[in-house]
């Protein structure tokens, strides 16, 4: 199965970013579905055979609707969930053969920024203590002053006054909580940060300042982002490449501009056409997609999208379409895409 555009193509597009930092290989995460007696009656395939490569310095967007498995994908890469199958190779090291604890030590430079950073901070801890914690865990050789210095540096980097260190998480605004969440993972000097819905729940004016901050930090600390979001207009604006997920599978992946201007997979097309564009054509005038995604515990045979697809044919029910890298800078998992 071809899963990815050959890395050489990325290399020709962006020679400076050709070095891979993360390889995800046939990653699967299945959750058991149990009946009332605790017997397993099936699997919920939250992430099902997902492979892609993230090059150093790029921003890869992962988009899809709720329940498509994009958050589970991020958490499985991070090691918060144990993968059911497959491997992730981060900075050249496989993590498949380690137990979760060891794998996390190896992945100090891989960090995860939570969707709701307010909830990811201990409500009974002052922000100062939460910011010290990662270094206490990973760099016990640092003394208090050294840690405090790094914490101050990170607070400056995320544009928060140091007086906020003495506040509790519930005493600051949502935008500020996000900055604290970022400062917290930045203390460990990560090279790749998985940003899980980093702008959801933020007001427009705050969202813009947070996105600016992401770009500043990326430049300053030489970061790579895996940007998980349902907001396509933001993904279009800041991501170099984008992977579209539907029910646990990547159905299309490639360069952002190519995918947004010429989507090959019918699902990507529907998704893009659903986004309201101010001043553009009104979605309500010509939106076509009917129905809702099927229950992920009871997936249709063959192509997962065929039940909602306007182009679906008999063949679509027989086999799952593989991701075809048939277009420059773009792969799609559809038999009918040309």
């Amino acid at each position: 199965m071809t899963l990815e555009p050959p890395i050489s193509r990325v290399a020709t597009d962006r020679p400076e970013t050709a070095k891979p930092i993360l390889d995800v290989l046939s990653l699967r995460k299945y959750f058991p579905i149990r009946n009332a007696w605790g017997r397993r009656k099936g699997w919920l395939k939250a992430v099902d055979d997902v492979s892609f490569r993230v090059a150093k310095g790029e921003i890869l967007g992962v988009v899809g609707e709720s329940g498509c498995g994009k958050s589970t994908l991020g958490k499985t890469i991070m090691g918060i969930h144990q993968p059911s199958d497959g491997d992730t190779i981060f900075e050249g090291r496989s993590t498949a053969n380690y137990d979760p604890g060891q794998a996390r030590k190896l992945r100090r430079h891989l960090q995860y920024a939570y969707q709701d950073p307010g909830a990811s901070l201990d409500p009974r801890w002052k922000i100062r203590r939460s910011l010290h914690e990662p270094m206490i865990i990973h760099q016990p050789e640092l003394d208090r002053d050294q840690r405090a210095e790094r914490v101050s540096e990170m607070m400056r980097a995320v544009n928060l006054p140091e007086t906020h260190l003495d506040l509790y998480p519930h005493e600051i605004s949502g935008g500020q909580q996000r900055r604290v969440g970022l400062a917290r993972v930045l203390t460990l000097n990560p090279s790749l940060i998985i940003l899980d819905e980093p702008t959801s729940g933020l007001d427009l004016s705050v969202q813009a300042t947070i996105l600016t901050l992401f770009m500043d930090l990326k430049r300053k600390f030489d970061l790579t982002y895996l940007f998980i979001s349902h907001d396509l207009s933001i993904v279009r604006m800041i991501c170099d490449r984008v992977a579209v997920m539907y029910l646990g599978k990547v159905v299309e992946i490639g360069d952002t501009e190519i995918i947004f201007s010429n989507p090959k997979h019918p699902y990507t097309r529907s998704l893009l056409s659903a986004v309201p564009t101010v001043g553009g054509r009104r979605v309500t005038d010509d939106f076509q997609l009917e129905g809702e995604p099927p229950n992920p515990g009871n997936m249709p045979s063959g192509c997962r999208f065929r039940t909602r697809c306007t182009m679906a044919q008999a063949d679509c029910a027989k086999a799952e379409p593989p991701l075809r890298a048939d277009w420059p800078g773009q792969s799609a998992a559809c038999f009918l895409a040309e």
């Binding site: 605004s173 427009l204 004016s205 705050v206 969202q207 813009a208 300042t209 947070i210 996105l211 600016t212 770009m215 907001d231 207009s233 933001i234 279009r236 604006m237 564009t277 101010v278």
Partner: peptide, 19 residues
């Protein structure tokens, strides 16, 4: 300023400083 904060707007990513 609100319209300028829309992703994709010209000169986007401005935001509005302050609370």
């Amino acid at each position: 300023r609100l319209l300028a904060s829309l992703p994709g707007a010209e000169g986007g990513l401005q935001g509005i400083p302050g609370n």
